[in-house]
């Protein structure tokens, strides 16, 4: 059992939890993910790692209520435990393989959509600590759905907020903000986009005409998450790749996003039905 040592709702539907998992806390790296099971008959849910503290032995995860299983996880309280918590899974971000000294002065642009802000955080933090220039664009529907604004501003050079309704920052989509930054003369050696599949697709279309390399982190369906089931397969560069062991990060310009979007929706009818059942008699 893995105790929830801290819990807080960042928005009405997004919840942050610190989990007591010492082995994962000492081995996790930016770019990796964990798999969580809330209860004995629970589903295995892949979640990106938001932060980790090897000294306290805790791993921070951020979960959005999108179906029955995420609703159950978010209904647990501080002091409760998750039945299972396994990781770190997947490959660390490419820059983790490089000599940290070589990162100094390199210019990074991160584009985070909604919950994608959470996995962007440890990457920005690591790069910022090693002297890279880090700009972050965070996009959300409306101001109240923006998460981790304060923490993010501490680990980057410029934080740009975009909201669909204009309630905060730039009124419009992250792709427009990217264009504005580039037009104003900002230059980047590398871009990273993490968020809804549809956002990553359009960030890729926006950046493709520039020569800036773009990495995306694919949140595909998974069951075991360890390279056994193949549910996470995606087409990258015309080849079938397994996001759980070969990813989750890939070169965005090679990803078949339309296929990935379609595959992601496979169990949506069952999820909606399960969530409906799950909500009966609950106040969440």
């Amino acid at each position: 059992m893995y105790e929830i040592v801290f819990k807080k709702f960042l928005t009405p539907t997004i919840c942050l939890m610190e989990i007591d998992a010492p082995l994962v806390a000492t081995s996790a790296k930016p770019g990796q993910f964990v798999i969580v099971r809330a209860r004995e008959m629970g589903e295995r849910i892949p979640l990106t790692v938001c932060d980790f503290d090897p000294v306290k032995g805790t791993v921070t995860i951020v979960i959005q209520i999108i179906g029955a299983s995420s609703r159950i996880i978010c209904s647990l309280e501080q002091g409760d435990s998750l039945t299972d918590f396994v990781g770190p899974l997947g490959r660390p971000s490419d820059f983790m393989e490089e000599d940290p000294a070589s990162l100094k002065g390199r210019r990074y642009l991160f584009v985070a959509g909604g919950l994608g802000t959470a996995p962007v955080y440890p990457q920005a933090k690591y790069l910022h600590e090693h002297g890279a220039h880090v700009d972050v664009i965070v996009g959300a529907k409306t101001e109240s759905l923006i998460i981790m604004e304060e923490q993010m501003s501490e680990v980057c050079d410029n934080l740009h907020i975009c909201t669909d309704d204009g309630s905060k920052g730039h009124h419009g989509l992250v792709t427009e903000k990217i264009k504005l930054l580039l037009e104003s003369g900002a230059a980047y050696d590398q871009a990273v986009a993490i968020g809804p599949m549809i956002m990553m697709k359009f960030v890729a279309l926006t950046l493709k005409p520039t020569s800036i390399p773009l990495t995306v982190s694919l949140n595909t369906l998974m069951v075991d998450g360890t390279g056994m089931c193949g549910a996470c397969r995606v087409t990258v560069g015309g080849k079938v790749r397994f996001a759980c062991v070969e990813g989750p990060e890939f070169n965005a310009y090679e990803v078949d996003f339309d296929e990935a979007l379609r595959r992601q929706s496979l169990y949506r009818p069952q999820e909606i039905e399960a969530d409906h059942k799950c909500r009966i008699g609950r106040d969440l």
Binding site: R44, M228, C229, T235
Partner: peptide, 18 residues
């Protein structure tokens, strides 16, 4: 990669382990 194509591993893991 069409929707509805599974590896036996996935299908069986869902039914057996899960």
């Amino acid at each position: 990669n069409l929707n509805g194509v599974f590896s036996a591993n996935e299908y069986l893991t869902r039914s057996n382990l899960m």
